[in-house]
Amino acid sequence: MTIGLFVPCFIDAFYPKVGIATLELLERLGCDVAYPFDQTCCGQPMVNAGCHPESAATQQLFVDNFAKYDVIVAPSGSCIHQIRDNLTAIEQTPEVVHVREQSYELVEYLHDVLGVREFPWARFPHRVGYHDSCNTLRNLGHGQPSELAGGYFSKPRTLLETVAGIELVSPARPDECCGFGGTFSVTEPEVSGRMGYDKITDHGAAGAEYIVSADTSCLMHQQGCAKRIGAPVQFKHIAEILNGDAA
């Protein structure tokens, strides 16, 4: 069984370490991972703005690149949500259906499919605030959102809690959106920025040294906001922690 590794465009361009950590982690866990070389993007930027036809060719390219793999794994919740739920601008051929049904976000794949609960190589002796991205939390079901009564669970925290030395801290607003929101970040920059500053401040008040997430897009936004307001907090993708990358 071969995994097609999807490294979304902004991870490819700005956060290659996240892609490397994902690849290495899956390989450590015994997976056969391939990286289709002509991949670009899942088509989300256009769809997020309502422009579905403009996304069709990108969606088709994605399917052409990935249909040959048994499963597709990406270290990005928002991209997997796009593929699974919104890859609809093209004809729903068996290939498209296969790609949509067999795409997993990394945490889901580790937690649900591989059932991994140990990362003995990982050590992260820091206070970590985990950022539930809205796509992983509410669209992919990473955990129980704070709005829903009862039945608390959190897949990413279940994984992180096994990492040696880690201390998880929680902001006062546990799963408030950070304000990235795809095109929202540039169509409503003032509100987006305010949300980002508030998010970082909330994590800081909880004592977080690192903000960790399964969505690099949220982290890119928060990192930019933190730099702008001079907040000392640092950022890591959950793949980097679980792969045992030194802080």
Binding site: A13, P16, P189, G193, Q223
Partner: peptide
Amino acid sequence: WGQVRDFPDVPAEGTF
């Protein structure tokens, strides 16, 4: 983007 937040650094190792 840049009005309210900084851009990410260009990674030393280039792209993935």
